[in-house]
Write a protein that binds this DNA or RNA. Sequence first.
RNA 1: CGGGGUGUAGCGCAGGGGUAGCGCGCAGCGUUCGGGACGCUGAGGUCGGAGGUUCAAAUCCUCUCACCCCGACCA
Length: 463
Amino acid sequence: MGDISRAKAGKAGKPADAGAAQAGKDAKLVEDLSDRDDYSRWYLDLVYKTELADESPVRGCMVIRPYGYALWENFQHELDTRIKATGHVNAYFPLFIPASFLDREAEHVEGFAPEVAWVTRAGNEELTEPLVVRPTSEAIIGHMYAKWVQSYRDLPLLYNQWANVVRWEKRTRPFLRTTEFLWQEGHTVHRTEDEAETETMLILRQVYQDFLEKELAIPVIVGRKTESEKFAGALRTYSLEAMMGDGRALQAGTSHNLGQNFAKAFDIKFQDADGVSKLAWTTSWGASTRLIGAVIMAHGDDSGLRLPPRVAPTQAVIVPIWRKEEERVAVEATVSAAESALRAAGVRVKADWREERPGFKFSDHELRGVPVRIEVGPRDAAASQVVLVPRTDRTAKQIVPIAEVAGKVTALLDSVQQALYDQALAFRKSRTYQVTSYDEFRTLLGDRATMGFIEAWWCGDPE
RNA sequence: CGGGGUGUAGCGCAGGGGUAGCGCGCAGCGUUCGGGACGCUGAGGUCGGAGGUUCAAAUCCUCUCACCCCGACCA
């Protein structure tokens, strides 16, 4: 199996050890998760091997394959539901932004200019005003908001858009950092500073944190970014940080209180109830396909992905086991009974009838992170039962009567969801340290085996 | 931008003047099948590109392109 096995063998691979390299049954995805290079290799192999994504001919741009896109669609659905439930509506703004718009907000242009893609020519003609491909949409949305906001009665304006953006990054990794990526970006306008701050926190907690913890089973630490790390042009930036399997942090979403910076730059003003013309307060917030990377790294193990049941494209896979034709017929009846019962219960279920050996399919679905496996062999068919195996513990098999399959699977899905969250939280706790001196801090930071979060006092950005 | 490295089959690699190899994957057939099977047969390559040396270049020389790694800079 030329698979997820060894990275080290890859480079040093001579024909002599080619045979030994196919370690067979015991082949682990990685040998040592504390080795950063190995972790990186494990991640990449997993992304390609599971067919979540593939490399494209365009540098830094990936192709999101059907399995990865199905996962993204489930993320979208859950996030979108929360965004709408908190009073926002969806809209769509152009991909291209007049280059001059970016210049309006000094910090904004300074932050994004180095990674902006330009369009200077269309067909054979040079454009009179060059366009940039949006790296984010504050500029063009700010421009439109200035038109639409006249009175305090027009506020708040609570819009969101699902879109792609482009940032010309030098080092890219599928999902985690790509030149083009998909995301949602919310842009709101408010009457007062308090209201804008409330919105910023609402998105942070009730939309993002709730989504990450309940749907993706990823515990997060929410907090405020330092001055040097905040969004270019923001007053304050808040983010959600999740711990990955190597102990490092991944920013899983951001929510910005933009103050009046963009209102000033784009002239978003309204006449208040007291008749005075005032500058508005705006916010923006976003979460991207990077979340797929977060799920991979927060939950993945040596056997592959472990997808949270609530967002897994396939929640339960049925593996039929048979040899002779009459066995196949008997098994098929039980499989379809289970399949329709589960479908009726709202479970995303698939039966895997490929002409492969059962062991191969077991591994394959573990690799792809399917939360629950259902085995149906001749013995099960004869006894009107099925075997359930959760992805989180392959030794925890349970045999259930076919009549109870829907209830048992639903319950098992819930427990897998919970187990993933609990394990991620326990891991984070085991890798969170308190330090009281700079020396301790440095020692911990430098050691990959203990890589994790460090709680320490901080006296602010250096001048 | 500075330093290093690599381009040979879909993927991972070997070969280093005599006309192309290995593993995986892929196709066909057979044996297998409750934890990643195996055998046989087969398909697949302008050896990154251009120029040069030579009877002969994947191999040597020159130029060029692309990508990767390490630094510096960074939502």
